[in-house]
Design a protein around this nucleic acid. Structure first.
Ligand code: FES
Ligand code: FES
Lengths: 144, 144
DNA sequence: CTATTTTCGGACAATTTTGTCCGGTATCGA
DNA sequence: TCGATACCGGACAAAATTGTCCGAAAATAG
């Protein structure tokens, strides 16, 4: 469904959100440990998120990653997925035709549209903060 | 969502179903032309489908691929997807945790379950024949 | 039987995705 | 100022996926 990079990205930003609510910056090392992901690979993904203004990054000692109050309030799951995986989930044809076209559809077009619409709506309406809240309340985890 | 191999596989078996309803065998060459897919790669996929008894294959002149009446009646989209991509779509965690576990869920577990359940149900209730019917009636296409 | 046709199966190649390394740069604290 | 820390960014490497080649095996037609 999502690429490995996107999975790491979501788990990472949720962890950052968790700490940011307490006003704490997190280092790359702590993040990759908290979500059990390869450190250097995670770094690349965080750079993307930072460049797209979904998170903030700071260099040097006491540096690390944090989300501003504005970001905490505004960033949706959709923004993360879009940044890393693009919008091919919504726009592409499920059977691999060159593009999805309702006036000239593949045999699964209608069925796919329904599922993708539900996915799109879920990603758009779910905030990162919601997800980190469920973490804080012990209802969910980010690694096994 | 699906692998390239799976996309080709679905399009291929739908075309075979279309021809089989008219009692016609189809050659690899005709299939890959009809669905616009790489020939040798498609051959591998058809072998998988054949070994899993979703289609029949015959060697030699007048050879090719066909679906038996029983296969035409019984084969569901789910069987094709399962043969090629396995069941990781249903069983795996959407955020990449080692496995999906409702008693120890990732923050997106509930949202994912809903979408995946809809997908599972759609794949399970849609037959290949249904799809080839929509083709025959000119309501859909298999290549651009 | 023989030549031809078509699938089968294994090895190989290209591409994409995933993951690593390492020097560079900015920042902080002493 | 100086050294240590932590992110940045580009090159590189490994693995998985996608795609190709070619000889073997089977079956048919002549
Ligand atoms: S044409 Fe295939 S999903 Fe729309
Ligand atoms: S635990 Fe992640 S989807 Fe179920």
């Amino acid at each position: 469904m999502f690429s490995k990079a996107c999975e790491y990205g979501i788990r990472a930003i949720v962890h950052i959100s968790l700490k940011s609510e307490k006003g704490m910056k997190v280092s790359l090392k702590e993040i990759s440990h908290a979500i059990n992901s390869p450190e250097a690979f995670t770094a690349k993904i965080l750079q993307q998120l930072s460049k797209n203004d979904l998170i903030q990054s700071f260099k040097g000692p006491t540096g690390g990653f944090i989300m501003s109050p504005k970001q905490l309030k505004q960033v949706m799951l959709r923004d993360v997925v879009n940044t890393i995986d693009g919008d091919s989930i919504y726009t592409g044809c499920g059977l691999g035709l060159e593009h999805c076209d309702a006036t000239n559809p593949c045999p699964l077009h209608n069925e796919f549209m329904e599922i993708r619409e539900q996915l799109r709506s879920m990603l758009q309406s779910t905030s990162i903060r919601q997800l980190s809240d469920s973490l804080r309340q012990g209802e969910a985890i980010l690694k096994r």
